[in-house]
Write a protein that binds this DNA or RNA. Structure first.
Lengths: 244, 244
DNA sequence: GCGTCGTTTCGGCGCTCACCGAAATGTGCG
DNA sequence: CGCACATTTCGGTGAGCGCCGAAACGACGC
């Protein structure tokens, strides 16, 4: 074995993680930024739970994904935005060549997703972060090792007409942090997050656009968010990134 | 098998091409932009020629590499700059994390390579293109389906003291186009290209820097290139790209 | 405590695939 | 033509790996 390149085995190992249709399916599904459970991914890919478990262990060990155990669930996410970018690059490279209108459309869909979207059953994107910040600033939500609603917070939800107890028993925590994909900061998940998302859609604060998970904040929504939580319209814009 | 993602198999197939240490070694070696022969790659990776042949067929079929048959040789190159970029991205991702000085150094090495370098045994990069253009403009070289020196061209080489016949018999064409990696345009290869490169180094027009294939055009070289071929110093700069 | 459910471990099956050596093909040169 | 050399084809071998089902594990909720 002559000089060669000592980094080839590492490259091969990384590529090997994505070189299986099932693992690739997992990674593509996880590109939505959500945290999936092992079982969900298994069903989605159409393989046995045991098979999925082994694959996920590989992907986690390889650093592409990270896991978060919670009770009997194993929540799986893509490790970080760089990894997501890499997977997207590879997927784009292997997919249809240029896709004339597709690229343009995908870009605008991307920014729409970054503004506001659903994540599972709660709100994410700039909107999700803004709400989480506002709740925290008003003393309705405390961010410790986890998230927790204060008494004032419980009162606020009740005042809006959201009954957190009616949302399916006690099988789920009331407030939970969920790492936001585009913002890289945790937003409100859990029962209260789901209730708030449902409420927002029912009250017309935002509407779904397209068949995607993307949302659009309505004028009414902008006004109500300002009234109820002091959220300024500017907070719903995508300022930080320098993209046109 | 539920909805899933129909593009997963394609992604897996692409990743699978790089998921083997030998194929990864090939691709990393080819990142230098040169065209290697199958045998060279086989020796470099330390595998049997037959094994290498099969791997190369896969990579070509997969679109990562392209081949150019020439006599009994099979010249292999990376298909296009986008592919090279992808491989580099993956390699960087799998390699050591940030590499404090490494990244910086690699960047400057990269620009040096883009300015002037050897490609096999001839000149490439901005320098190679400038020379090829100048020879063509002066009627010394014609670019048809291939490259060919004119009578004037043969005379010019002789006048510079380069004996093209003395460079190893007739086993190689006098002038041949070679696709330049950084410029994406063909530059002069073949016997005359090799002779010119040797001449340039002997006369001190350029010197090797580092252990790489990178070259630096000396002040003397800049002057002589202007005298002999009318090449302006600006032509040796990297203008087109907008990188800082 | 006991059933339910998500997950993991274990054993085993079958297929793919990287590898080699030997022989075949094809090209260039004397 | 015949030798030399680069490459390819063709078996054949061995290892690795994806898959499943059954059983074990552990958390949850009644």
């Amino acid at each position: 074995m002559p000089s060669s390149d000592h980094s080839a085995p590492q490259l091969a190992a990384l590529a090997g993680l994505l070189a299986d249709a099932t693992r690739a399916t997992f990674c593509l599904a996880l590109l939505d930024g959500r945290a999936w459970t092992g079982g969900e991914l298994a069903r989605y890919a159409g393989v046995a739970p045991s098979t999925a478990s082994a694959h996920l262990s590989q992907l986690v060990a390889g650093g592409l994904l990270v896991e978060e155990r919670q009770g009997r669930h194993r929540y799986i996410r893509i490790a970080n935005p760089q990894t997501a970018q890499l997977i997207e690059d590879l997927a784009a490279f292997s997919g249809p060549p240029p896709a004339p209108t597709g690229t343009l459309k995908a870009r605008s869909v991307g920014t729409a997703l970054a503004r506001a979207r659903t994540c599972y059953d709660h709100l994410a994107g700039r909107l999700g972060i803004a709400i989480t910040d506002a709740l925290t600033a008003r003393g309705l939500l405390v961010q410790d090792s986890g998230f927790a609603l204060t008494d004032d917070g419980l009162g606020w939800f009740a005042a809006q007409g959201m009954d957190l107890a009616a949302s399916g028993g006690s099988r789920r925590p009331v407030a939970r942090p969920c790492l936001d994909w585009t913002e890289r900061r945790p937003h409100l998940s859990g029962l209260s997050g789901a209730a708030l998302c449902r409420h927002a859609l029912e009250e017309g604060w935002c509407v779904r656009i397209g068949s995607q998970r993307a949302l659009k904040v309505t004028d009414e929504g902008t006004r109500r968010l300002h009234e109820l939580l002091g959220i300024e319209p500017e907070e719903l814009e995508l300022a930080p990134t320098g993209n046109p």
